[in-house]
Design a protein around this nucleic acid. Structure first.
Lengths: 198, 198
DNA sequence: GTCACCTTAGTTAATGCTCACTAACTTACA
DNA sequence: TGTAAGTTAGTGAGCATTAACTAAGGTGAC
């Protein structure tokens, strides 16, 4: 027997996350996954009863990864909508730059209508939308922004930021010139903020 | 032999487009595809030399579908940026509501880094971005909008609209309340337009 | 301490299914 | 009568999963 690794199960989930996000569930074989962990195929089945089971574990682990980075620490409650939008956009893009795989897994799971896709969506986007929605409600209460449907506004803004993050991963190299995220934010957040300010 | 259909090749491409967009290339078998066309598997190979070949043809056919609907007929050149944005958003969402499959195929092809993904991206998004970019340049020339990087602005706005369209297909049922596209547009376009107007 | 024994995590080898693709044959029609 | 477009019946590769076996290490009796 080769070396017995302390947390093999977690190692498999990490390797599967990487492989599934890069090639998609269907194009990753148990053999590849096992090799990435320096074990043989059947050893994988000591820890998971099926390939689908591994997918489940991968999607579950995303919840942990989101939770552990206490999301909204950096998102201070400012009275300036531009500051709120700017912090949120920076935070989201920064997060996805360092966790490209999560965005891809979200798309894969949604396209395949995986049973956990809704949960993943909720974890990854719902929390941002809810946060911004609350902030907009607060700012409206303080008469800082105009009257709008704040849920729609929040969804659209978060959608735009997610799209922008995708530009750096999924659409990379397809869009002609590549702009720095900071420049994109500096260009667009003021437009949106100006449109919202009272 | 069963009935000899006049344009079997086109029929296969249509059926493949439908199946690939709904389940993804890897989860569609030639058998399913053949059945959808009321023929047997080997008959498919009279028209295409491989499954990959069919994928190629599907992606190529998207270009045709975009071209044939002369994209920008409805997009009149207004002097009001709000009108321009409104028409574009309506047009895009309307288009994807009726051609959900194309949006899914774009995502699949990009995720799988298909050789034709860039082309598909260019056809589907690039043309919108370019149009809006030109319009923004024109409006800036007419001193109707403030100074911005119009390419970034165009990309972001199109991204937001595409995201919104995805909400009605990919994220359907994951977002809690479902809003009518018209309501989303009515809420958001004025924000963006107000932020841009001089 | 050490020895029997159980559990856990690994191995090699095989199994059986699915699926893309092919061979060989057939028929409609220009 | 040749060709294009079908058919039925394979074939072989790939892949998830299992069978059978093995070794490492912890535990409790002595």
């Amino acid at each position: 027997m080769t070396n017995r690794t302390p947390n093999r199960k977690a190692q498999i989930v990490r390797a599967a996350t990487d492989l599934f996000s890069r090639h998609g569930f269907d194009r990753v074989t148990i053999k590849e996954l096992a090799q990435a962990c320096d074990i043989t195929e059947p050893a994988v089945y000591r820890h998971f009863k099926s390939k689908d089971d591994i997918y489940d574990a991968v999607l579950d682990s995303m919840a942990e990864r989101m939770k552990s980075r206490d999301l909204f620490d950096s998102l201070t409650e400012s009275d300036d909508v531009e500051v709120v939008l700017h912090k949120m956009a920076t935070h989201v893009i920064d997060f996805f730059t360092r966790n490209e795989d999560m965005h891809r897994l979200l798309l894969y799971s949604a396209l395949h209508k995986h049973a956990k896709a809704s949960k993943v969506y909720e974890i990854m986007r719902g929390s941002f939308v809810k946060f911004l929605h609350d902030q907009l409600d607060r700012l409206y209460g303080q008469k800082m922004i105009v009257k709008k449907n704040n849920e729609i506004t929040a969804r659209c803004f978060v959608g735009m930021v997610f799209e922008c993050a995708l530009g750096r991963t999924l659409w990379k190299g397809m869009q002609g010139k590549t702009y720095k995220p900071a420049d994109v934010i500096a260009n667009n957040v003021p437009i949106y903020a100006r449109g919202l300010k009272r």
